[in-house]
């Protein structure tokens, strides 16, 4: 399944949908292969109905400007690029204005992409995320 994006923008923006206890919210995230995990603005998680009591873990995250501490919240359902994950762990973080995240509410990170084939066509402005085959090093197809 192929999804369009604007290859002329500064970031690769993809649509995602988070299902929460009170609201299901469609948002735009920056595709970030430099992020190990998927991050959402904590205000968005709160809006969807999650509270700090829903967090199952707390982690330190290394950023370009230092180390921060985030709560990990497993969300009921998370959809992006035609894939749906249930009980998907989301890192809750505040993205203040002026930090380069002004137009996005989070980052789609590597944890969502692993085990799949990601194709980004900057000529056509198309992204495809296909289920992969287990053919990595040490794995017999």
């Amino acid at each position: 399944m192929t999804f369009p994006f604007d290859p002329t923008q500064g970031l690769v923006i993809v649509e995602a949908k988070i299902a929460g206890p009170t609201n299901n919210v469609v948002v735009h995230l920056a595709l970030d292969t430099g992020a190990t995990n998927t991050f959402l603005d904590e205000a968005l998680l709160a809006f969807a109905g999650y509270t700090p009591a829903d967090a199952t873990s707390q982690f330190e995250v290394l950023t370009a400007s230092g180390t921060i501490r985030v709560l990990e919240v497993p969300v009921t359902s998370f959809m992006a690029l035609g894939q749906t994950r249930t009980s998907f762990p989301i890192q809750a973080h505040s993205f203040p204005p002026g930090t380069g995240h002004d137009g996005v509410l989070g980052l789609l990170g590597l944890d969502f992409l692993r085990g799949h084939v990601l194709t980004i066509d900057f000529i056509k402005g198309e992204i495809t995320l296909d289920p992969g085959t287990p053919a990595g090093p040490g794995v017999t197809p």
Binding site: G10, L11, N24, V25, V26, H28, A30, A64, G103, V104
Partner: peptide, 27 residues
């Protein structure tokens, strides 16, 4: 909005450019 009665299905988006003109981004 959290304090209001809202439909369950909503969308949030920014109406301007994701990256302001002339700005570089390091995520």
């Amino acid at each position: 909005a959290k304090g209001q009665t809202l439909p369950r299905e909503v969308v949030v988006f920014f109406t301007g450019p994701v990256v302001p003109p002339g700005m570089k981004v390091l995520l």
